[in-house]
Design a protein around this nucleic acid. Structure first.
Length: 272
DNA sequence: GTGTCATGCGTAT
DNA sequence: TACGCCTGACACG
């Protein structure tokens, strides 16, 4: 159930645990037998992420490319290892550490050029750290939006425009920016574009740090909600159809956009 | 227990 | 625009 923050979190954690180590791989499920055989005995160089894609880079030049899709999940395990569930696509282990991967959309071995090609198909990633990358990213993001008449709600989920946002962040960031999801992307003014980028950077970073998506400003939460934050307490509009907006009280609306649901506050995100 | 839905996306139509 | 992937959570009975 992963948006970009989860993958970057995994990249950091997996690098910490496995960089420089020789791994053993197996595929209890059997759908990655050949890959596991190929990777076993190889040394991990590092693990990095772009958007929702994760890349395990090996000294040999092999790259294990993973995309979790809608269902995929990583478990980090330490010895003594639990019995692997039979649906584990791959187990990657070194010494007392093991990654258990289940349900991914993609799990395949690429060479470096192929891995580069995956990244090149993606838009800029707001979780990239260097100042230069972020500045370039913002410029690309602005250029891409300027060339699209498509609704901003669709553009924000388009991984070629901005890599790493999923349905929750899409809805929440548009709310925070005060933009109606149907507004044409090329009609968002420069200030709005800059705000969308900055909100994406800030929100994804928060998510990366905490491992969960909490977009609601702590100052806007009641004391009781703060004590135990349920998912519906942690967001402004996502899955809150017909509930009152936390800021203005208007009823949150929802609609289907490209087979995904989008939520917005008709008052805070006016349609013009 | 069964049915539906979902933080995603590639491919076919 | 529709389907397939292939999993878990949750609502409902």
């Amino acid at each position: 159930m992963p948006e970009g923050h989860i993958l970057h979190r995994a990249a950091t954690q997996h690098t910490k645990l496995f960089a420089g180590r020789v791994i053993d791989a197996e595929s209890p499920q059997g759908r990655f037998d050949q890959g596991a055989e190929r990777l076993s005995g190889q040394t991990v160089a590092k693990v990095d992420a772009h958007g929702k894609h994760l890349f395990w880079r090996f000294d040999s030049g092999d790259v294990l490319h993973i995309h979790l899709g809608l269902y995929g999940k990583f478990l980090v395990q330490t010895a003594p290892f639990p019995e692997p569930s039979p649906n584990a696509r791959v187990l990657l282990s070194a010494g007392d550490d093991r990654i258990h991967l289940a349900g991914p959309t993609a799990c395949d071995i690429l060479d470096e050029a192929e891995a580069d090609a995956v990244v090149e198909r993606l838009g800029p990633d707001p979780l990239h750290r260097s100042k230069k990358q972020l500045q370039d990213g913002e410029r690309r993001f602005a250029d891409l939006l300027a060339r699209r008449r498509t609704p901003i709600g669709r553009a924000m989920l388009d991984q070629k425009v901005i890599a790493g946002l999923g349905n929750i962040y899409r809805a929440e960031i548009l709310f925070l920016a005060g933009l109606h999801p149907m507004l044409p992307a090329n009609e968002v003014d420069a200030e709005g574009v800059a705000e969308l980028w900055q909100l994406s950077v800030d929100q994804l970073r928060l998510g990366q740090k905490s491992g969960r998506i909490v977009t609601v400003d702590p100052a806007e939460l009641g004391a009781s909600s703060r004590a135990k934050l349920s998912r519906s307490d942690s967001v402004y509009v996502y899955k809150r159809h017909d509930e009152p907006c936390r800021r203005c009280g208007a009823l949150v609306r929802s609609a289907s956009m490209d087979q995904r649901t989008i939520w917005w506050c008709p008052q805070c995100q006016p349609e013009e």
